Amino acid sequence: MLPSIGLGTYKLKGEEVIDSVTNALELGYRHIDTAQMYDNEREVGRAIADSGVPRDDIFLTTKVWTDRFRHDDLIASLHESLERLGTEYVDLVLLHWPSPNGEVPMAESMAALVEAKRQGLTRHIGVSNFTNAQLDEALNLEGGDQIITNQVEVHPFLANRKVVDHCEARGVKVTGYMPLARGRVMEDDTLKAIAEEQNATPAQIALAWVASRDIVVIPSSTRREHLESNMEAMKISLTADEMTRIDELDRGERIANPSFAPEWDE
């Protein structure tokens, strides 16, 4: 359902995001991830429209920001996203973060997601940055069985095992964002050594490690050669010893941790 690799567009704006999405689609990417908060939906939509790739061949994800979580406002925000994206539907809509301090009851936001799917605004629904307890709460609500993914930070320095294992146990796919730890993987000696053994780059090794855990990866890149290299990483098979060596890099190094973040499962 979810393509194993996608293009993340966080922090990409204007011509930069247009070029990134254009190059990705030319290289064979068919999974594009954006969000209302990224302020680039219009450019993402333009690049998709100009690509010549049939819309139905592309898995397009957007995320609703926390200030639009009330039922009617969430539906209205999706109509706005669709207008900016220039499409009649998205393939996946996520709640971008849990509602800060539980301001909007999860039942209200979940009901809105289910309604959005019923109206054909999205084909699938999911959540992002949810703790295990929050995911359980969402799954137990009406329509919770329709949640297909929890998008969370995952990279060699933050394995996020408790969340990944819990999602797997509950039948929810994990999508891992920031799989390259904003480029920090390139400086790690263990990843560099394995990369040399595999005739690859440290970034490719990091992506292969995340993907080998049955996690969808959505790395971001503005350079065509890096986009191509990231896709090639999906073909790399790591040995059990290499996996163990990368496993040992986990140090709970969380990059996305805003003031309104939930109390994480550590």
Rank of each mutant, 00 (worst) to 15 (best):
K192V: 14
G120H: 00
V217C: 11
D189E: 15
W209K: 15
D165E: 13
V163E: 04
L227Y: 07
T122A: 06
E248L: 15
D247I: 14
L113R: 06
I236Q: 11
E142Y: 01
E168F: 08
I246G: 10
S221K: 11
H166P: 02
T190G: 09
D189V: 12
D189W: 06
R224N: 03
K192G: 06
D136H: 03
R223Y: 03
L113I: 03
A208N: 14
R123W: 02
S229G: 07
H166E: 02
T190L: 10
N140P: 00
N199V: 13
L135S: 05
A208P: 13
I218K: 09
Q204W: 05
Q198C: 14
T149A: 13
H226A: 06
K162L: 09
A116H: 00
L238V: 07
L207I: 12
P179W: 09
I125E: 01
G183N: 07
T222A: 05
P156L: 06
V172I: 07
H166F: 03
V172C: 05
A193N: 14
E242S: 11
T222D: 01
E153M: 05
N230L: 07
V174L: 08
A203Q: 08
G252V: 05
Q146K: 14
S220G: 09
R161W: 04
A181R: 13
A206G: 13
D136K: 03
S128H: 01
V114C: 05
A208L: 12
Q198W: 03
E168T: 13
A233E: 05
A233N: 07
D241F: 02
T201I: 09
H226M: 07
R184L: 01
V152S: 07
L113W: 00
R223G: 01
V152H: 06
H124T: 10
L139A: 10
V216Q: 10
E137A: 02
H166N: 03
L238P: 06
S237D: 10
F157R: 09
R182T: 08
R123D: 03
D145G: 08
A195M: 13
R184G: 03
I194M: 13
N150H: 04
D241Y: 02
A193D: 14
G183K: 10
H124L: 11
L249E: 07
T122E: 00
A240I: 03
M178C: 11
V114E: 05
E153Y: 04
M231L: 12
P202W: 11
F130I: 02
D241L: 07
N230K: 12
H155C: 07
R213G: 14
A193L: 15
L139N: 11
D189L: 11
A208T: 13
Q151H: 03
N129V: 01
E115T: 04
E232I: 04
L191S: 15
A240E: 05
A181K: 12
E153S: 08
G120P: 00
A195S: 15
E196Q: 15
A138I: 00
H226W: 11
R184F: 00
H155V: 08
V152P: 06
L121C: 00
S128M: 01
